[in-house]
Design a protein around this nucleic acid. Structure first.
Length: 296
DNA sequence: CCACGGCCTGATTC
DNA sequence: AGAATCAGGCCGT
């Protein structure tokens, strides 16, 4: 029997499922028309937004049981009005907020998020997704929902056991070594991701960056997208370009200098500002089809 | 601190 | 068409 609920959570502030799931934070969502299919915390989900809220199919847990999980995952506990008031410092960011109102950060599983962004180095969004699926297909558990099958995301233990060569074999490239190392550190308890929540942003970041293959950018992604550090400000080429052109007037600054600048400018929700800048810049490039290659 | 080459691989560009 | 180039970085020199 198929169960379905409309998760009729009061969403008093804007929420845009499409913008949220297609803003490059999460890598295991597949779109089918207006539905999105993904795997979160061992549950396969099929979700769609309507005027009431979010419709959900799920397995193995029933949708009703997953309401707290979904509320957390989609950060429906964030008051976006407050976020917007805080980061809305100028007409440029205001335009992004206006265009993508309801785009939310996600609160993902830290381990899965860390793996995804280890895979992100010198890669691109489709390939990161392919890597994540290959990892799940090979090492996860099968979950079936309405004749579709997906696989849960495997634990660090499981990937530590797999080892570097096996990860290379599923085409992770040079990232296999970093992933194998990180898996071992987490499996052995030397890196306790949940514990990072209780640390300050800078302390948590330092812990993450102790792992080879995790630099400032990847650490910031994990902190912003899974560990509730909303002041984290991941800077990739798109955000960097937005910052250079719109805010820094071409001034040369190191990565961490730009982070500090953004934090002092946008405040404690700098991570939200980053997500809007990133999304806007990326879509812009797509629409125009061409990208000026003067920068690199 | 900064600059640079190398790293796996697949898609896109020339 | 085959060869460069590039993609949501990081590390070592």
């Amino acid at each position: 029997m198929v169960s379905k609920v409309t998760v009729n959570l009061a969403i008093p502030h804007p929420f845009d499922l499409t913008a949220t799931l297609e803003s490059g934070q999460a890598h295991r969502w597949h779109r089918e028309g207006r539905w999105y299919c993904g795997v979160v915390y061992g549950n396969m989900l099929k979700v769609r937004q309507n005027h009431m809220g979010i419709e959900v199919f799920s397995a193995p847990a029933e949708p009703e049981e997953l309401i707290p999980l979904l509320t957390s995952y989609f950060r429906l506990d964030d008051n976006l009005d407050v976020v917007y008031q805080t980061i809305n410092r100028d007409p440029l960011i205001a335009d992004m907020i206006d265009r993508y109102a309801g785009l939310r950060l996600l609160r993902q599983e830290p381990w899965e998020c860390l793996v995804a962004f280890i895979c992100s180095a010198t890669s691109n969004i489709p390939r990161i997704g392919a890597n994540m699926e290959a990892i799940a297909d090979t090492y996860g558990q099968r979950i079936t929902l309405q004749c579709h099958s997906r696989f849960s995301f495997p634990s660090a233990d499981r990937l530590a056991e797999a080892g570097e060569q096996a990860l290379r074999d599923i085409r992770l490239g040079f990232r296999a070594k970093y992933l194998a190392y990180a898996a071992r550190e987490v499996a052995e308890g030397n890196l306790d991701l949940e514990k990072l929540r209780s640390l300050s942003y800078w302390d948590a970041k330092t812990c993450l960056m102790d792992i080879p293959g995790i630099g400032a950018k990847i650490a910031d992604c994990v902190l912003a997208f899974s560990l509730d550090k909303m002041e984290a400000f991941p800077i990739d080429r798109w955000v960097n370009r937005a910052m250079q052109e719109w805010y820094l007037n071409g001034r040369k600054m190191s990565y961490e200098q730009v982070v500090r600048w953004a934090q002092s400018y946008f405040g404690p929700y700098a991570g939200y500002a980053q997500q809007y800048l990133f999304h806007g810049r990326r879509l812009d490039r797509r629409v125009r089809g061409t990208e000026t290659r003067t920068g690199k």
